[in-house]
Nucleic acid binder design. Structure first.
Length: 208
DNA sequence: GACCAGATGTACT
DNA sequence: GTACATCTGGTCT
C-alpha cells in the first residue's frame, strides 16, 4: 500500500451514481498526527442534488453549510448532525450542480488500533459501519469540510487495484431519510456484498 | 429486534 | 424562537 495515488478530479466529475458505485472497494487514506490510517469503502449513498428531497441542496438550497456541495467535484463535504455526529460526503459532478456521495461504511486496512483508540477503545465489527462511526474513527470533522481529495494531503481516496464484480454490488433504499417522500425509496445506497455492510435495513427508519 | 435519549448546529419563521 | 436532523449507544424484551 506504499505508493497509492489519489484518484483524479475526473473520477468525481461523472454521474453521481457512477461515482458511488465506483467508490465501493476504493481506499480512503487519512493522515493523522499519530500515523496513517486506511480503510476500504463498502457502503455509500448517492444524493442527487436539487431534485432529491433527501439531499441538503434540494430545491436549490444554498447555505453556508452546503456551500462545499455547490463547489467543484473531488472535495470533501463534512457536516454536523444530531448535535454530536459528523458525516463525510464526496462532492461529484460540477460547480453549480450540488450532488454528493455519503460515505457510510468501510473495513479497516491499516492503523486499526489508531481508529479503535479514536472510538474510545471500541474495536469490533462495527468499528467503521455507519457514517458517524467512520468519521470519528478517521478523525474527520468540520475542519476538513472542503478538503481537496485529489492532492494526496490530509485525506484522499485511491485505487489499490481491488476489483469488485458488479454481482457483488447491491443497490438498496437509503437510510434515515423517512421524511423524503418518494425519494426515500430510490435505490441509491450501494453496498459491497459479503463485506461488513450494516445489517440494519431500511426498516429501522426513525420516527420523527 | 425494538425502542429511546441524547446535544447542539442549522434552517426557517 | 422553534423544529428537526444523511445517527449512535444503551436498555429492554
Amino acid at each position: 500500500m506504499a505508493r497509492l495515488q489519489p484518484l483524479g478530479r475526473r473520477f468525481y466529475q461523472r454521474d453521481t451514481v457512477a461515482v458511488a458505485r465506483g467508490l465501493l472497494g476504493k481506499v480512503l487514506v487519512r493522515r493523522l498526527p499519530e500515523g496513517i490510517v486506511a480503510v476500504r469503502l463498502v457502503e455509500v449513498e448517492a444524493y442527487l442534488g436539487v431534485a432529491d428531497r433527501a439531499c441538503h441542496t434540494f430545491g436549490g438550497r444554498r447555505t453556508p453549510r452546503t456551500e462545499t456541495m455547490w463547489g467543484a467535484a473531488g472535495h470533501l463535504y463534512v457536516y454536523f448532525t444530531y448535535g454530536m455526529h459528523h458525516c463525510a460526503n464526496v462532492v461529484t459532478r460540477r460547480v453549480g450542480d450540488p450532488q454528493a456521495v455519503l460515505l457510510r461504511g468501510a473495513v479497516p486496512l491499516l492503523g486499526r488500533e489508531l481508529m479503535a483508540a479514536r472510538r474510545g477503545g471500541r474495536d469490533g465489527s462495527d468499528l467503521l459501519t455507519g457514517p458517524a462511526r467512520l468519521t470519528r474513527a478517521l478523525g474527520i470533522d468540520r475542519s476538513l469540510d472542503g478538503a481537496d481529495l485529489t492532492t494526496g494531503a490530509d485525506v484522499f481516496l485511491a485505487d489499490d487495484g481491488f476489483r469488485r464484480s458488479a454481482d457483488w454490488t447491491m443497490a438498496l433504499p437509503r437510510v434515515g431519510i423517512a421524511y423524503a417522500g418518494e425519494a426515500t425509496a430510490w435505490p441509491l445506497r450501494f453496498v459491497l456484498a459479503g463485506r461488513g455492510g450494516r445489517r440494519r435495513g431500511a426498516g429501522s427508519a426513525r420516527r420523527r
